[in-house]
Design a protein around this nucleic acid. Structure first.
Lengths: 259, 259
DNA sequence: CGTAAATTTGATAGTGGTCAAAATTCGTGG
DNA sequence: CCACGAATTTTGACCACTATCAAATTTACG
């Protein structure tokens, strides 16, 4: 599947990633942490948004509902569920601290998916029209908004690429890696994460069955890339995030081409 | 994979789709056509953007390149190719007339993917900072921009859902359906489409191999859902777009549950 | 018109889905 | 705090869909 142009393209990709910001080292994580804290402070000061407490299962907005608000997640965890006309439903996104919710509603005046909390937390409610007014006065707000939408587009594309190009085991590993990254960006610990989703939900998000998720997790634990906490198998210890990336690499090169 | 809550959710999904705008009937297509024409006129009048001719293979922007411009496709066809650090590459989007390009660059100051023309056409080049200035004066421009970003997010999620929930045959059918829809929205004929991509590119976009794409197309032709034009197998005739949707449905219900 | 690329089709193999059963965990009330 | 039933998770066996490999055919293009 790798074309003959892979190498120069890889070089460009590396240049892109290693240019202004490294995504994986500690300073970058802290930068992300500051980015998020700063953004939240700016929003809070400029708009004094209403705050809403969330509990697992709470619906923030629903597909079909009239659009009017954007939301910013201050804490907790939210899943985005897309619905098709024929009844298929799928988790198409996960949101952590600092993420915006509701962009999908702007285009058609109605939200096109459900946003459901899967952990206790807090969202800030921002009226879209009020935000636009504030943006006119304070361009930094507009920059923030566009940055968030842009990042969302990038994340969605990365998710598509993951589903299309990685085998099941690697997809699960990559999922854990990006979860840990999001935790780090939000200023939370990254060595142990608590999956607030069932295997079925994870599988739905990753495009595989719950059995495959379970098998992949078992394999990751067998390979010592992750470990389960003593109580409950929803707590995953990640001794080394790099090991997860390495595992993904290994899946992509089954035979190291010993020549 | 369908939970016990499918039915009420389906009802909501239907309400969402059938609410303000029907996506599939003729009037909606014409609305979309007007929407695009109107948007292009507004942009042209407000910004008098530079115009750039495109030929197949031309690169509009590259991953890693400094962000500065957004682009609007006036005609032609552009593919968006995402790159991963480890060399994987994947088509993550296709753009038609009226679509915006370059949103992915806003977040990090550099584009994160390649935009490559796959047909002759024309893009309009818009400096992002100039656009923001113009938006301050003319709020309709800002609305246009946000609408485009929102639609992009929705499309990316739909693509993810398609890859995750549909078998290969249905994915190809759905791909043709959405291509025809995009053509219709751009004011072009929808009964015959010319795939400007190789089977390998289509497969890459849909997360399958080129052989599977070929087999699926053969099956669609055998089932009379599509037909190949006499000259060249890249021209696909679609006698009835609804038949493509029906085919997707059939794939989802292998046995009609004859009770 | 000839060569290289793209496409189709067939044969075979493997990843991941499906079905099933056992084990573990969770939620709730005694 | 413990017990019990429901839900979740794990693991195994089997099979289907799709990938892989290969060869023949068609198409594109210099």
């Amino acid at each position: 599947m790798h074309s003959e142009t892979t190498l120069p393209r890889l070089a460009r990709a590396l240049a892109a990633v290693c240019g202004p910001v490294r995504e994986t080292d500690i300073s970058a994580s802290q930068q992300a942490g500051y980015r998020i804290s700063g953004a939240l402070k700016l929003l809070s000061d400029a708009l004094a948004p209403a705050r809403r407490m969330l509990h697992a299962g709470d619906v923030i907005y629903q597909a079909g509902e009239q659009f009017g608000n954007l939301y910013i997640l201050n804490s907790g965890l939210v899943k985005i569920v897309n619905l098709s006309v024929d009844g298929r439903q799928q988790v198409v996104g996960l949101n952590f601290r600092g993420d915006w919710l509701g962009f999908d509603g702007i285009a058609h005046g109605r939200y096109s998916c459900d946003a459901v909390a899967i952990d206790t937390g807090e969202v800030w409610v921002i009226r879209y029209d009020a935000l636009l007014v504030a943006c006119a006065v304070q361009p930094a707000l507009l920059a923030l908004l566009h940055e968030a939408m842009s990042r969302e587009i990038g994340r969605d594309r990365d998710a598509l690429m993951s589903v299309c190009t990685l085998p099941a085991d690697a997809r699960v590993a990559d999922f854990l890696r990006s979860w840990a990254q999001s935790q780090a960006d939000g200023g939370m610990r990254t060595d142990e994460i608590t999956l607030r989703m069932t295997r079925a939900e994870i599988g739905n998000y990753l495009g595989m069955t719950l059995e495959t998720v379970s098998r992949s997790l078992s394999k990751l634990a067998r390979d010592k890339v992750i470990a389960f906490a003593e109580k409950g198998r929803r707590n995953v210890r990640i001794p080394d995030v790099e090991a997860l990336s390495a595992f993904v690499q290994r899946c992509l090169t089954p035979v190291p081409m010993l020549q």
